[in-house]
């Protein structure tokens, strides 16, 4: 059972505030998991903590992947082990063309001397750009610089397709995308689907799940997973919101946390 991502009792603090309060989750390769939850439930914190952002302090628990406690590893070591995070808000790296960045990231993974011929790299790059309906010239642009919200998300997925991770975490990759783009992104993820790929899709909306068809859906509230089920759970939430579920579990949330914020709504149509 080493080919799985196993999160045990994970507690994470950000700037002295505890956000994750004992989270357990197992993602097997070959499975697609969706995590849904109201604002402020700690979904993005989970994503950053798994990838090892220095601001996210793990105070308790462990995360095993391929038999290693990856909390001991630097973010780049986690990536080379097969973990990937598609960022909700990818950073701009001025002056670094996307293609050069990809080439270097792939090279870094091949530390054992194995080489990727440039022709092969180029071929894969063109194929994947096509999959994401991106123009060839897109790869010559500086990383995320001047990209629209949608382009940034597609660039994240492009990186995922090029790096071929074993477990990918998608942090609200669907937010800010129009429905066609959501479809394109979901198709790209589905293309990787298979026994060698597992995915943890964090989302605020049900709609991407129509295309992604997760095997499991988890509801996260206040730093814990409060309910897990199959795809039907997502439909339930979409139809009724979080309120009935929260009431059932006896959880009270702060005002405004249960619905997408104004800003997110705006972003949703951008």
């Amino acid at each position: 059972m080493t080919d799985r991502l196993e999160i045990r009792n994970l507690h994470v603090r950000v700037e002295e505030k505890e956000i994750l309060k004992g989270l357990d989750l197992i993602v097997q390769k070959g499975e697609i998991h969706a995590i849904m939850g109201p604002n402020g439930s700690g979904k993005s914190t989970l994503a950053f903590a798994l990838m090892g952002h220095p601001k996210y302090e793990v105070t308790e628990g462990e995360v095993l992947f391929k038999g290693e406690n990856i909390l001991e590893l630097e973010p780049d070591e986690r990536a080379r082990l097969g973990l990937f995070l598609a960022f909700q808000y990818p950073y701009e790296i001025d002056g670094v063309p996307l293609s050069r960045f990809l080439l270097q990231a792939i090279k870094a993974r091949r530390a054992n001397g194995e080489k990727l011929p440039f022709g092969e790299f180029r071929k894969r790059l063109l194929e994947n750009l096509k999959k994401l309906r991106l123009d060839e010239s897109f790869a010559t642009r500086y990383l995320n610089e001047g990209f629209s919200g949608g382009e940034k998300k597609r660039a994240e997925i492009l990186q995922m397709l090029m790096l071929r991770p074993e477990i990918a975490i998608l942090d609200e990759t669907d937010s800010g995308l129009d429905i066609d783009s959501v479809k394109i992104v979901a198709e790209a993820v589905n293309a990787l689907r298979g026994p060698d790929f597992g995915c943890l899709a964090i989302t605020h909306y049900q709609r991407i799940l129509n295309f992604l068809k997760p095997d499991y859906v988890h509801v996260m509230v206040d730093g814990r997973i409060v309910k897990s089920g199959g795809p039907e759970l997502a439909h339930e939430l979409e139809a009724q919101g979080y309120e009935p579920l929260l009431r059932e579990l006896g959880i009270e949330l702060e005002e405004g946390a249960q619905r997408p914020s104004k800003e997110e709504e705006k972003e949703g149509v951008a």
Binding site: M51, E74, P75, Y91, A105, A108
Partner: peptide, 9 residues
């Protein structure tokens, strides 16, 4: 962190 998350030391 962003670059490291892609496997770049």
């Amino acid at each position: 962190f962003y670059l490291q998350s892609r496997g770049i030391p």
